[in-house]
Design a protein around this nucleic acid. Structure first.
Lengths: 96, 96
DNA sequence: CGAATTGTTCGACGGTCATCGAAATGATAA
DNA sequence: TTATCATTTCGATGACCGTCGAACAATTCG
C-alpha cells in the first residue's frame, strides 16, 4: 500500500504550482528525490549556485507549499522531499 | 490503449509549469477539460472575468506551452485542451 | 568566553508578469 | 462597401518575484 495522500485545497494546489514553476526550485526537488541522506542548506547552495539568502527564500517557499520538510538539527537544517504531497498534487492534476 | 504522449524536453516542461502556476490559466484549463464543445475567446472572457486582451495573452502562453490547441474558424478561435501533453507532464512529474 | 560555521531576516535592485484600454487586423453580415 | 463582431497587438502600469549583500541569530568548537 502507498501512504495516504493529504487532500489539497485550492490554495495549497496553487502554491504548489507556483513553487514548481521556478527552474531552480524544481532542480532542487529533483536532487532531493535522488538524494539518499537529507541534505543541508549549504549543499543546496552548492547544487544550485545560489547565495544562502536565496536558498533560504526558496526553501521557505517550498515548505509553505508543503513540498519539503525541514527538520532542524543543531546547526544544520535537514531537508527532505514530501512525496505524499507531491503525489497528491500529481493525482489531482491527472484527474483533469 | 491511450494515445502516445509526446516527450517533453526541459524547456517545454518548465513552460508548462509556469503556465499552470497562474490561477486564471488553471481555471481555464479546468473548464476546458469539462467543456463538450470547443469554446471561443469570448466565452473565456466571461468565464474568467478578464478583458479580451488579457485572455489572448493567456491563450498564447498556454498554446506556446503546448497545453491547448487553437484552431481558427472564421471569426472565431476554437480552443481545446491537449490532454496528451498534460498527461506527459503528469507522467514526468510522477516519475520524480 | 570568543571564534567560526550554519542558517535566517532585512532592505534593495532588476526583471518578469498579469492586467487593461486603445488601436489594429480579420472576417462576417447588412 | 460599410458596419459589426471576434481576436490580436501595442504600450503602459502596478504588482510580484528571484537575487544578493549585509546584518543578525543560533549553534558548535577551542
Amino acid at each position: 500500500m502507498t501512504a495516504r495522500e493529504p487532500k489539497l485545497d485550492a490554495d495549497q494546489f496553487a502554491s504548489i504550482s507556483k513553487a514548481l514553476a521556478d527552474p531552480k526550485r524544481f532542480d532542487l526537488l529533483q536532487r532531493l528525490a535522488e538524494a539518499t541522506d537529507a541534505p543541508t542548506c549549504s549543499s543546496v547552495c552548492g547544487w544550485l549556485g545560489l547565495a544562502p539568502a536565496t536558498v533560504s527564500h526558496h526553501l521557505r517557499e517550498l515548505e509553505t507549499a508543503g513540498l519539503v520538510h525541514i527538520e532542524r538539527d543543531g546547526k544544520f537544517a535537514r531537508i527532505s522531499l514530501r512525496r505524499d504531497v507531491l503525489a497528491a498534487y500529481v493525482k489531482q492534476l491527472a484527474s483533469l
